[in-house]
Design a protein around this nucleic acid. Sequence first.
DNA 1: AATCAAATTGTAATAAGGTAACAAATTGCA
DNA 2: TGCAATTTGTTACCTTATTACAATTTGATT
Lengths: 165, 165
Amino acid sequence: MQHEPDQGDAFAPHDHALCQSRALAEAEERLRQQGARLTPVRRRTLEILLEAHRAMGAYEVLDRLAEAGFGRQPPVAYRALEFLVEHGLAHRLQRLNAFAACLHPGEDHAPVFLICRVCDKVAEAHAANVRSELSSAAGELGFTVERATVEALGLCPACAGRDAE
Amino acid sequence: MQHEPDQGDAFAPHDHALCQSRALAEAEERLRQQGARLTPVRRRTLEILLEAHRAMGAYEVLDRLAEAGFGRQPPVAYRALEFLVEHGLAHRLQRLNAFAACLHPGEDHAPVFLICRVCDKVAEAHAANVRSELSSAAGELGFTVERATVEALGLCPACAGRDAE
DNA sequence: AATCAAATTGTAATAAGGTAACAAATTGCA
DNA sequence: TGCAATTTGTTACCTTATTACAATTTGATT
Ligand SMILES: [Zn+2]
Ligand SMILES: [Zn+2]
Ligand SMILES: [Zn+2]
Ligand SMILES: [Zn+2]
């Protein structure tokens, strides 16, 4: 079965020059409506991300910006990337740089983490249904999931209770 | 409705001293079976993680290890943490430190990322079902999801095809 | 056109997270 | 006891990210 190519599907063969120019045009239009400016660094940053159809580290983007004559210091890239993320034109692939004791040792599992933003506690939720939905969503694009990271930030019941008072 | 407390639920009120000692005993038993050794650093590292019921950065763990008389250098903590993760006694909350252009700007979405481990391309999959399963799994523990990160690593159709040949 | 405040860009300095490489000490046998 | 394998300690370095402040650009206002 062949799936319909769509605009989020970087994997499907497509006219990528058109894909890029359309995204750039949409970005200009959206920013104009919001009264935000697509300045040269920001525009070049978006172009750099669009060229690749892959995730790039901030320092890789920074190198390309420097080649194009912009500053060589980290904030140059981080600011432009942050602007794009804030305006819905790019995503940041998350991090948390942390470790937690396993609460279900021996079950050979790939859990979903629930992290309370108030008390910082971490719980592990049962992930089977989440993972099966993920696999099927991926399957629609022909993608095979091998490992997945699912981390939710929110409110645990104790902190939610305290909040509501 | 009250949910049944279970061993993965750090949010439920529970006898945490018992929770810790049980986890430690289970760890010892599991490692013994595998012929791996719960040495002093490793044991203290696991205790540190268990004390908190929250995720801790490697450097925070390192500080605590140093207080307990172990080395003050990053590898001391990273090695012990890696050992615990390898043996299923701890989890690493993932990272990817990267940015990608949004492929659906304007849809105000929280997408699921599919990252091909061979070609590094990133696609955005439709996330509604994944997120609703996530919310309901979280809901069973009384947790309210505000933001969630879902990143899958695997094979895109093109690279899977190449692989199969 | 001259002026000025706000926004943007440039730069230096430093914090935080992570790994490679090798030396010293410990452990468990032969 | 002797020795190899494992574990721990330390040095040095790399990547990622932020704070603070200076210089420049922009767009509106006079
Ligand atoms: Zn494209
Ligand atoms: Zn909480
Ligand atoms: Zn507990
Ligand atoms: Zn691929």
